[in-house]
Design a protein around this nucleic acid. Structure first.
Lengths: 357, 357
DNA sequence: CTGTTAGCGCATTCAC
DNA sequence: GTGAATGCGCTAACAG
């Protein structure tokens, strides 16, 4: 325990805001040089046990925290990951949280923080993040097929990882769910349950127009599986918002799907309304037909009755993205050669599919 | 347009990573001193029109961005707001996004960024944010009645705003929905619709145990309104997760509510299951009884049938919090004297309440 | 193993 | 209205 003498009394010249504790203060208290304090903290050179102990005691005593700005300035590393998230108007904000959460957790595990930027800033947000050295790397979500931000992202001075697969990734690493496989798994399951006709409810027009390309990738996987199994597959118009939309969609499903159709609803927004309308007509999913949703497990369980689903695996996708990101940051670690990394979905049987034959 | 001569050719000694453009580079190109560049950007002293033009042209030409770390170091301001969000296990993560989004928008409007910290770091996260000078102010969400972080937050070197009202705010500014008023509004409406008995479905045990105190505040408001109107008010056990939970809750509602009860469901998770169970029993909300939810408008509209609700107003709450925050940061602006700011909810009539008499 | 030193890029004080 | 000079707190190269 160090005793503070009268010498350490100082006039407050700082407007009442207490002066920050610096590594020099720690050095003085520990009786070492300032750089030694730095090396104790970074572990970038060996320190004798005795010195380390004294420095650590001083750090503790003064409750020293390194200044992030100064550290970033000197080391050229911010220890911050920029995260570009979709902004609501038009974006599928549902199920966004698990991504954010997982990304934040992975960042913290590697002693990094997460700076949030909303997508409405567009390319300007990316330029700001990199230009001002606000972060060491960027994760971009909600990638469109023809995303105008990608050419910009590719020229930034920091690595960028995409969650989503654009038409041209411009050399950037991408991580996403394996949507073709997801489509295949849904149709495989329906075929195995004995359905000879499968109806796929389309995605909302706004999503398609925005060019979110998992739509096409999912449908292609479903189509392929259908021809492989020799089952008929029809794609019907998407569910418009509101009760009427669900009515119209179910109408079409029944028209083209005939009796006992297998139904695929790749849209968590529409799931509950569609289930509701079906049941209102006396058609019980799990008894009179099978329905498989494409959504997170949470959404599948929140719905009545709990829906059999192919999961979106937001945590797996995010974790993989962060893994690649830190491989890119740590010189020495090799990122994967394959730029596009697809995460396998998982099918969970719940109450909306017929029992296995 | 400046022409670069052979003099500006330099060997790359920087491992391929291009050197960053600094305000000195801008100064050289514009033929002014570095400090002039700084003053042009900050506007903290008057600059002749000609000089300003040349500097701005140089900034444009070099695509100069100020280095955030250096700026923070020199100015003691990071232009970053720390945001502490709840971490999933046990927290009501539903409807979190509108808060985050609004906070991010308000921050950007004031040329600030948002650094995300998850609540699982507890007080350590707060100490890190302030200690490392990662941000100029902190917004904390999901405040518990007896939140251990609050005494810590109160001693930080940066202002902290709470979204939520703890038992002891320790001198910190708080913003939250006016939950007593929300409870009152729900019961007022049910009374006006002619219901003589009101049943309030309790909050989930986990929420109550965590000490999220809006539970009690809401119920107290409801109780007061009930006695004012002379209607009976019963609080029944909360809806356990899953179908069975909703069954049990509805059972109790009907037991104590009698015929044509007015029901209040202050829990968006439980809303759909409860509606479902009621309808399965042939009791149609909006026809045979009235049901009012406490949830966001989005949640009320997502449910079948669309629910009359008292809104949580996440955007209003967030906006108010950010307004106070910037008042605290801008010396000169006076924050409100009243530390606790309550935002009035809004009741929207939808399909689950009886038509007005 | 440890200390000394030189910047990192910017805001700001002083001098003119 | 402008420039020169200083220092924010830290990392890392250099010198023992």
């Amino acid at each position: 325990m160090t005793t503070f003498t009268a010498l350490s009394i100082r006039i407050d010249t700082n407007g009442g805001r207490r002066r920050m504790v610096t590594s020099r203060d720690v050095a003085r208290v520990a009786g070492v040089s300032q750089s030694t304090v730095s090396y104790v903290m970074s572990g970038r050179r060996s320190i004798s046990a005795a010195t380390r102990r004294r420095v650590e005691a001083a750090i503790e005593e003064l409750t020293y925290h390194p200044n992030a700005g100064a550290r970033a300035l000197a080391s050229q590393r911010t220890q911050v990951i920029g995260l570009v998230v979709p902004f609501t108007p038009g974006a599928d904000t549902t199920g966004l949280l698990p991504f954010i959460e997982t990304i934040a957790s992975c960042a913290r595990e590697a002693d990094h923080d997460v700076l949030l930027v909303t997508a409405n800033e567009g390319s300007a947000g990316l330029k700001r993040l990199a230009g001002r050295s606000l972060c060491d790397a960027i994760v971009m979500m909600d990638i469109e097929t023809d995303d105008a931000r990608i050419p910009v992202a590719a020229t930034l001075s920091v690595p960028v990882i995409l969650i989503g697969v654009p038409a041209d990734n411009a050399g950037l690493h991408c991580v996403d769910l394996d949507f073709p496989l997801a489509g295949r798994m849904a149709v495989d399951e329906l075929a195995a349950l004995g359905h000879r006709r499968v109806v796929l409810v389309g995605h909302p027009a706004e999503v398609v127009e925005r060019g979110v390309n998992f739509v096409g990738r999912f449908e292609r996987g479903a189509t392929d599986a259908a021809s492989a199994h020799g089952v008929a597959l029809e794609v019907v118009a998407p569910v418009a918002p509101g009760r009427d939309g669900a009515e119209a969609a179910v109408e079409q499903v029944l028209a083209v799907g005939g009796e006992r159709p297998g139904v695929v609803v790749p849209n968590s927004q529409a799931l509950q309304p569609v289930l509701q309308v079906l049941m209102d007509r006396g058609l019980h999913p799990g008894r009179d037909l099978s329905l498989i949703a494409l959504c997170t497990d949470a959404a599948a369980e929140a719905v009545t009755p709990a829906a059999t689903n192919v999961s979106l695996e937001p945590r797996d996708v995010s974790r993989r993205a962060m893994q690649i990101l830190f491989q890119l940051l740590d010189r020495g670690q090799e990122p994967p050669d394959e730029l596009v990394q697809l995460i396998p979905p998982r099918l969970t049987r719940r109450r909306t599919t017929l029992p296995s034959p």
